[in-house]
């Protein structure tokens, strides 16, 4: 029993008001719950990080190939912040973030601000502003080029990296950088993600001031996408070919339109003789 509870007990069955006062005193004395770490919810990844999750007030870089789990990892951090009812922002440079997938991973879309700057160089500025404001628990800056776009990926210079780090520290939120292997940035902590095969992907701590560099974990794809189904070569259903015309059958023009109202043998009703009788055929079927 805590000291406060003992005090309440000593007061015996004191008035409800007294008990409530005591409770308020306890609440006020209790240190406020500050969020210091965003746990991704993926136990192997959280175990790799020295703080047990992504540390707030810092820049963390997720570097990897185009489909190596970086985005999903960032989305899981955003979902963790949303569980605490905090706001998050996503500076979407390549304009590729897909909301249905994010919602599936537990992201509250109403609390996620998406920023899509027209010019690529505005992305870093926007992220600095968002992180510095302190209104967002997690800001994700996607610096990748995007699959469809041409040209080289712009690297984040030292000055910009410093601005980002300063903004994260001042705002007290997490700043996640998503970068590609060809143009890494200068984050305080860098995690490298790699797509292994259909079974799993790996994450490795490449750089960390608080130790733990070199630690690596292999995580199955189903932790991020439970129904991806690419284990052991995948499963291909045996389906027939599909026609390019998607018009459903019931809307297709019937054969009678092609026959222009004629009978199945091409005869004109009332002119080319009587229609063949079905009576004989039906009688045969009946017997």
């Amino acid at each position: 029993m805590s000291a406060a509870e003992q005090r309440v007990g000593a007061a015996g069955s004191g008035s409800v008001v007294e008990q409530l006062r005591e409770r308020i005193r306890q609440l006020q004395a209790e240190p406020r719950r500050y969020l210091s770490v965003l746990r991704t919810g993926l136990a192997p990844v959280d175990a790799l990080l020295p703080a047990g999750g992504f540390p707030l007030g810092q820049v963390v870089e997720l570097c990897g190939e185009a489909a190596s789990g970086r985005t999903s990892l960032a989305l899981s951090a955003v979902a963790a912040a949303h569980r605490e009812e905090r706001l998050c922002a996503w500076v979407d440079g390549p304009r590729e973030l897909y909301a249905p997938s994010a919602a599936g991973q537990g992201v509250d879309l109403s609390r996620l601000l998406i920023v899509r700057p027209r010019a690529p160089e505005q992305a870093v500025w926007a992220a600095v502003q968002l992180a510095r404001s302190g209104a967002f628990a997690c800001v994700v800056l996607d610096l990748t080029r995007g699959m469809g776009s041409a040209g080289r990926t712009a690297r984040v210079g030292i000055a910009e990296a410093r601005k980002l780090a300063d903004a994260a520290e001042r705002g007290g939120g997490l700043l996640l950088l998503l970068t590609s292997t060809e143009a890494p940035a200068d984050g305080v902590t860098r995690l490298r993600t790699e797509s292994g095969d259909g079974d799993g992907w790996s994450v490795e701590v490449v750089r960390s001031r608080r130790g733990g560099a070199g630690a690596r974990a292999v995580v199955p794809w189903r932790t991020l996408y439970p129904e991806l189904g690419l284990e052991d070569g995948g499963r291909v259903l045996d389906v027939g070919p599909v026609e390019g015309d998607a018009t459903p059958d019931f809307l297709r023009e019937g054969a009678w339109v092609a026959r222009n109202g004629r009978g199945i043998q091409g005869q004109r009703p009332g002119r080319d003789g009587a229609m063949p009788s079905l009576k004989a055929g039906l009688a045969a079927v009946a017997h």
Binding site: A67, E96, Y98, Y225
Partner: peptide, 13 residues
């Protein structure tokens, strides 16, 4: 929704 990719290209390539 869980089977959808986290990144969707602006135009299918």
């Amino acid at each position: 929704t869980r089977e959808r990719p986290s990144r969707l290209l602006a135009e299918p390539a």
